[in-house]
């Protein structure tokens, strides 16, 4: 089939977005569109794509790119009208991870996802009303899902006793 005809729906969405904003777009396959935006445009673009039908925020994710000293945030949004998944990607500094919240757009749905990522990656979402921890109790160490947090070290130091003979093998085992 003609490639243009095959991706008609996806191309229509891309045209709508790129007529308004300067973004990098790619079509991965049918029903999967990826958009890379800069940090400061995120809220504006989110607002726009919600207006064209992307009402369901499926997930927000953070990828810790430790070598490039960046966090890559991905917002996976689904449209019930066009049956297409749009992923917005944006990068922020890993040492000072702050970004504007999208709670004003996807409301309670976004709130929970951001709350989770704040806890697990330490990302600061500006204007999110409630960033209290979800899963961990009394945690004051590095956010645990960062690449530089070694959970095997942590578990050994925290829960195993070096003097206890029965737990000795845990200290000799390679990490």
């Amino acid at each position: 089939m003609n490639k243009y005809l095959e991706y008609q729906k996806e191309n229509r969405i891309i045209r709508k977005i790129s007529s308004k904003f300067k973004v990098e777009v790619s079509i991965q396959r049918k029903r999967r569109v990826w958009v890379a935006v800069s940090k400061k445009d995120l809220v504006e673009i989110s607002n726009f794509i919600k207006g064209i039908g992307f009402k369901h925020l499926s997930a927000i994710s953070v990828t810790d790119l430790i070598k490039e000293k960046n966090y890559e945030l991905t917002y996976h949004v689904w449209s019930y009208q066009d049956n297409t998944l749009l992923t917005i990607k944006t990068r922020i500094n890993r040492d000072k991870p702050t970004i504007d919240s999208v709670v004003s757009i996807w409301e309670d749905n976004a709130q929970i996802h951001e709350r989770e990522l704040h806890e697990l990656f330490g990302v600061e979402f500006k204007n999110n009303p409630n960033l209290t921890p979800l899963f961990l109790e009394d945690w004051n160490n590095t956010p645990p899902f960062r690449k530089d947090f070694n959970w095997r070290d942590y578990v050994r130091d925290e829960f195993y006793n070096k003097e206890n003979k029965r737990e000795e093998p845990y200290w000799d085992a390679p990490l």
């Binding site: 997930a59 994710s61 990828t63 810790d64 929970i112 989770e116």
Partner: peptide, 14 residues
């Protein structure tokens, strides 16, 4: 990186 999106996160909180 593996991000898992479970349905119950949203059903059980908001």
């Amino acid at each position: 990186r593996c991000k898992i999106r479970g349905p119950s996160l949203l059903h059980q909180i908001p």
